[in-house]
Lab assay of single mutants.
Amino acid sequence: TTLTVNTQTYTFTSEEEAREFARRYGAKTIRKTNGTWEVHG
């Protein structure tokens, strides 16, 4: 199964959650914005 996250942004309140998600789905960018963490595919 392949998950494609081209134009979607996922927002997390903790860096740990964001990094775990990025690691699991191979997202390329993690960015902190206004106190939340954004993961970009």
Rank of each mutant, 00 (worst) to 15 (best):
residue 1 T to R: 01
residue 1 T to P: 13
residue 1 T to G: 14
residue 1 T to D: 13
residue 1 T to Y: 06
residue 1 T to K: 05
residue 1 T to L: 10
residue 1 T to A: 11
residue 1 T to M: 11
residue 1 T to N: 13
residue 1 T to W: 06
residue 1 T to H: 12
residue 2 T to W: 08
residue 2 T to K: 10
residue 2 T to Y: 06
residue 2 T to A: 13
residue 2 T to C: 08
residue 2 T to I: 11
residue 2 T to V: 09
residue 2 T to R: 06
residue 2 T to L: 10
residue 3 L to C: 07
residue 3 L to P: 14
residue 3 L to W: 05
residue 3 L to K: 05
residue 3 L to S: 14
residue 3 L to V: 11
residue 3 L to E: 13
residue 3 L to D: 13
residue 4 T to V: 12
residue 4 T to G: 12
residue 4 T to Y: 08
residue 4 T to P: 14
residue 4 T to R: 07
residue 4 T to W: 07
residue 4 T to L: 10
residue 5 V to F: 09
residue 5 V to M: 11
residue 5 V to L: 10
residue 5 V to I: 09
residue 5 V to D: 13
residue 5 V to A: 12
residue 5 V to R: 03
residue 5 V to C: 12
residue 6 N to T: 12
residue 6 N to I: 14
residue 6 N to Y: 09
residue 6 N to M: 13
residue 6 N to Q: 12
residue 6 N to H: 12
residue 6 N to V: 13
residue 6 N to K: 06
residue 6 N to F: 10
residue 7 T to P: 10
residue 7 T to S: 10
residue 7 T to G: 05
residue 7 T to C: 12
residue 7 T to I: 12
residue 8 Q to V: 13
residue 8 Q to E: 09
residue 8 Q to K: 10
residue 8 Q to I: 12
residue 8 Q to H: 12
residue 8 Q to D: 08
residue 9 T to A: 07
residue 9 T to N: 07
residue 9 T to H: 09
residue 9 T to K: 09
residue 9 T to M: 10
residue 9 T to Q: 05
residue 9 T to R: 09
residue 9 T to I: 15
residue 9 T to D: 03
residue 10 Y to S: 03
residue 10 Y to E: 02
residue 10 Y to L: 05
residue 10 Y to Q: 04
residue 10 Y to A: 05
residue 10 Y to G: 02
residue 10 Y to D: 01
residue 10 Y to N: 04
residue 11 T to E: 05
residue 11 T to A: 06
residue 11 T to K: 08
residue 11 T to R: 09
residue 11 T to P: 02
residue 11 T to G: 03
residue 11 T to H: 08
residue 11 T to I: 14
residue 11 T to M: 07
residue 11 T to V: 13
residue 12 F to R: 00
residue 12 F to D: 00
residue 12 F to G: 00
residue 12 F to T: 01
residue 12 F to P: 00
residue 13 T to I: 08
residue 13 T to V: 08
residue 13 T to R: 08
residue 13 T to F: 12
residue 13 T to M: 08
residue 13 T to W: 07
residue 13 T to Y: 14
residue 13 T to A: 11
residue 14 S to M: 03
residue 14 S to K: 04
residue 14 S to E: 05
residue 14 S to N: 11
residue 14 S to A: 03
residue 14 S to V: 04
residue 14 S to T: 10
residue 14 S to G: 02
residue 14 S to P: 00
residue 15 E to V: 04
residue 15 E to H: 04
residue 15 E to G: 02
residue 15 E to L: 10
residue 15 E to W: 10
residue 15 E to R: 04
residue 15 E to P: 02
residue 15 E to C: 06
residue 15 E to I: 06
residue 15 E to N: 01
residue 16 E to T: 08
residue 16 E to D: 09
residue 16 E to M: 09
residue 16 E to S: 09
residue 16 E to N: 07
residue 16 E to I: 09
residue 17 E to L: 06
residue 17 E to Q: 07
residue 17 E to V: 04
residue 17 E to W: 02
residue 17 E to P: 00
residue 17 E to H: 04
residue 17 E to I: 03
residue 17 E to G: 03
residue 17 E to R: 04
residue 17 E to M: 06
residue 18 A to W: 01
residue 18 A to H: 00
residue 18 A to Y: 01
residue 18 A to E: 00
residue 18 A to Q: 00
residue 18 A to K: 00
residue 18 A to F: 01
residue 18 A to D: 00
residue 19 R to E: 10
residue 19 R to W: 09
residue 19 R to S: 05
residue 19 R to P: 00
residue 19 R to I: 10
residue 19 R to T: 08
residue 19 R to M: 11
residue 19 R to V: 10
residue 19 R to H: 07
residue 19 R to L: 11
residue 19 R to D: 06
residue 20 E to Q: 06
residue 20 E to D: 08
residue 20 E to Y: 04
residue 20 E to K: 07
residue 20 E to H: 04
residue 20 E to N: 06
residue 20 E to M: 05
residue 21 F to P: 00
residue 21 F to V: 02
residue 21 F to H: 05
residue 21 F to I: 02
residue 21 F to Y: 07
residue 21 F to E: 01
residue 21 F to Q: 01
residue 21 F to A: 04
residue 21 F to M: 03
residue 21 F to S: 01
residue 21 F to W: 07
residue 21 F to G: 01
residue 21 F to T: 01
residue 22 A to T: 01
residue 22 A to L: 03
residue 22 A to S: 03
residue 22 A to K: 01
residue 22 A to R: 01
residue 22 A to V: 03
residue 22 A to H: 01
residue 22 A to Y: 03
residue 22 A to E: 03
residue 22 A to C: 09
residue 23 R to K: 12
residue 23 R to I: 08
residue 23 R to L: 09
residue 23 R to Y: 06
residue 23 R to T: 07
residue 23 R to Q: 10
residue 23 R to F: 07
residue 23 R to C: 14
residue 23 R to P: 00
residue 24 R to Q: 10
residue 24 R to W: 06
residue 24 R to I: 11
residue 24 R to C: 09
residue 24 R to E: 07
residue 24 R to M: 09
residue 24 R to P: 02
residue 24 R to H: 07
residue 24 R to K: 14
residue 24 R to L: 11
residue 25 Y to V: 15
residue 25 Y to D: 02
residue 25 Y to T: 15
residue 25 Y to M: 12
residue 25 Y to S: 10
residue 25 Y to E: 05
residue 25 Y to K: 05
residue 25 Y to P: 00
residue 25 Y to F: 11
residue 25 Y to A: 08
residue 25 Y to H: 11
residue 25 Y to Q: 06
residue 26 G to F: 03
residue 26 G to P: 03
residue 26 G to W: 03
residue 26 G to H: 07
residue 26 G to M: 03
residue 26 G to I: 01
residue 26 G to R: 04
residue 26 G to D: 05
residue 26 G to S: 05
residue 26 G to Q: 04
residue 26 G to L: 03
residue 26 G to T: 02
residue 26 G to E: 04
residue 26 G to V: 02
residue 27 A to N: 05
residue 27 A to F: 15
residue 27 A to V: 08
residue 27 A to H: 15
residue 27 A to K: 06
residue 27 A to D: 04
residue 27 A to M: 15
residue 27 A to R: 05
residue 27 A to E: 04
residue 28 K to S: 14
residue 28 K to N: 10
residue 28 K to T: 15
residue 28 K to Y: 11
residue 28 K to H: 14
residue 28 K to C: 15
residue 28 K to M: 13
residue 28 K to W: 06
residue 28 K to Q: 13
residue 28 K to E: 13
residue 28 K to D: 11
residue 28 K to L: 12
residue 28 K to G: 08
residue 29 T to D: 09
residue 29 T to M: 14
residue 29 T to F: 14
residue 29 T to N: 07
residue 29 T to K: 06
residue 29 T to Q: 06
residue 29 T to Y: 14
residue 30 I to Y: 06
residue 30 I to Q: 03
residue 30 I to S: 03
residue 30 I to A: 02
residue 30 I to G: 01
residue 30 I to D: 02
residue 30 I to T: 06
residue 30 I to V: 10
residue 30 I to W: 03
residue 30 I to M: 04
residue 30 I to N: 03
residue 31 R to G: 04
residue 31 R to N: 07
residue 31 R to E: 09
residue 31 R to Q: 11
residue 31 R to L: 13
residue 31 R to T: 11
residue 31 R to K: 13
residue 31 R to H: 10
residue 31 R to F: 10
residue 32 K to L: 14
residue 32 K to Y: 15
residue 32 K to C: 11
residue 32 K to H: 12
residue 32 K to N: 12
residue 32 K to V: 08
residue 32 K to S: 06
residue 32 K to I: 07
residue 32 K to W: 11
residue 33 T to E: 14
residue 33 T to F: 09
residue 33 T to I: 14
residue 33 T to R: 09
residue 33 T to K: 12
residue 33 T to N: 14
residue 33 T to D: 14
residue 33 T to C: 13
residue 33 T to H: 12
residue 33 T to M: 10
residue 33 T to Y: 08
residue 33 T to L: 11
residue 33 T to A: 15
residue 33 T to P: 13
residue 34 N to M: 03
residue 34 N to E: 06
residue 34 N to Q: 04
residue 34 N to C: 11
residue 34 N to H: 04
residue 34 N to D: 14
residue 34 N to A: 05
residue 35 G to I: 01
residue 35 G to Y: 02
residue 35 G to K: 03
residue 35 G to N: 07
residue 35 G to L: 03
residue 35 G to Q: 04
residue 35 G to H: 04
residue 35 G to P: 00
residue 35 G to M: 03
residue 35 G to R: 01
residue 36 T to W: 07
residue 36 T to P: 01
residue 36 T to K: 11
residue 36 T to N: 07
residue 36 T to S: 08
residue 36 T to V: 15
residue 36 T to D: 05
residue 36 T to C: 10
residue 37 W to S: 00
residue 37 W to V: 01
residue 37 W to L: 01
residue 37 W to G: 00
residue 37 W to C: 03
residue 37 W to F: 04
residue 37 W to I: 01
residue 37 W to N: 00
residue 37 W to D: 00
residue 37 W to R: 00
residue 37 W to Y: 04
residue 38 E to K: 02
residue 38 E to D: 02
residue 38 E to V: 13
residue 38 E to C: 09
residue 38 E to F: 05
residue 38 E to Y: 06
residue 38 E to L: 07
residue 38 E to S: 03
residue 38 E to Q: 07
residue 38 E to H: 05
residue 39 V to L: 02
residue 39 V to K: 00
residue 39 V to M: 01
residue 39 V to Q: 00
residue 39 V to N: 01
residue 39 V to T: 02
residue 39 V to D: 00
residue 39 V to G: 01
residue 39 V to F: 01
residue 39 V to I: 04
residue 40 H to G: 07
residue 40 H to R: 10
residue 40 H to P: 04
residue 40 H to E: 13
residue 40 H to V: 15
residue 40 H to A: 09
residue 40 H to D: 11
residue 40 H to M: 14
residue 40 H to Q: 13
residue 40 H to Y: 14
residue 40 H to K: 11
residue 41 G to C: 15
residue 41 G to D: 07
residue 41 G to Y: 15
residue 41 G to R: 07
residue 41 G to K: 11
residue 41 G to W: 15
residue 41 G to M: 15
residue 41 G to T: 15
